[in-house]
Design a protein around this nucleic acid. Sequence first.
DNA 1: AGTGTTGCTACATTTTATGTAGCTTTGACA
DNA 2: TGTCAAAGCTACATAAAATGTAGCAACACT
Lengths: 107, 107
Amino acid sequence: MALPIPGKPVRGSKSGQPIMALFDLLGRNWAMGIIWNLNEGSCTFRELQNRCETVSPTTLNVRLKELTSAHIIERTLDGYALTPFGKELFDLLLPIGKLAKGWSEKF
Amino acid sequence: MALPIPGKPVRGSKSGQPIMALFDLLGRNWAMGIIWNLNEGSCTFRELQNRCETVSPTTLNVRLKELTSAHIIERTLDGYALTPFGKELFDLLLPIGKLAKGWSEKF
DNA sequence: AGTGTTGCTACATTTTATGTAGCTTTGACA
DNA sequence: TGTCAAAGCTACATAAAATGTAGCAACACT
């Protein structure tokens, strides 16, 4: 799938509003899970595979390339890691995690 | 796709941690876009189709059923609407929208 | 040389999403 | 009361993505 570029048509918006471009990216299978898991610390491809439990190497690799192109993650000597922007994004995902706990009681 | 039920295995977590169940749901095509667009006000199926620009009725219908089962949206006399929980969720999505603007300048 | 780990790629299969058509119901209006 | 438009879908064929399993090449260690 092509990288969603803000300003150009993406899934959800012909004008490519930034939020829609980001939703396009984050909405892809495993994207948020990868960010979530990477926040626990930089790690190798295979370690990340373990943390994500059921992701296939194919999908993981595609997602990693996309997230890297989008400056959300990067490769360091320790392996894959969140960029400063990726960390900001994680910080915004965190309250959603808290909300999810309350939500889970509805089931 | 089956509804992700927190506490049961979902994409991303065999134990079904709430955040993973929610990510599973939100990560599906158009889920976040629907929430985003519904915040502008309750509306009909066809109006929502217009707001989402390029969603197919098939996908929209599937997503609406899932989000309804998950208590994120509901049907009212005005059509589809965010539930109180859906609004809380939107409020957490909002700052991501702001972050997206800064992000878009990286391209 | 032999063994283990890492970071992938290949590829067949299964799942999802898309796009176009169009059916059914409801309600307004002449 | 006929008809016209809009709403809320469903059907179905096609295209696009994800999955799962295997395994290869590069490197480290012994």
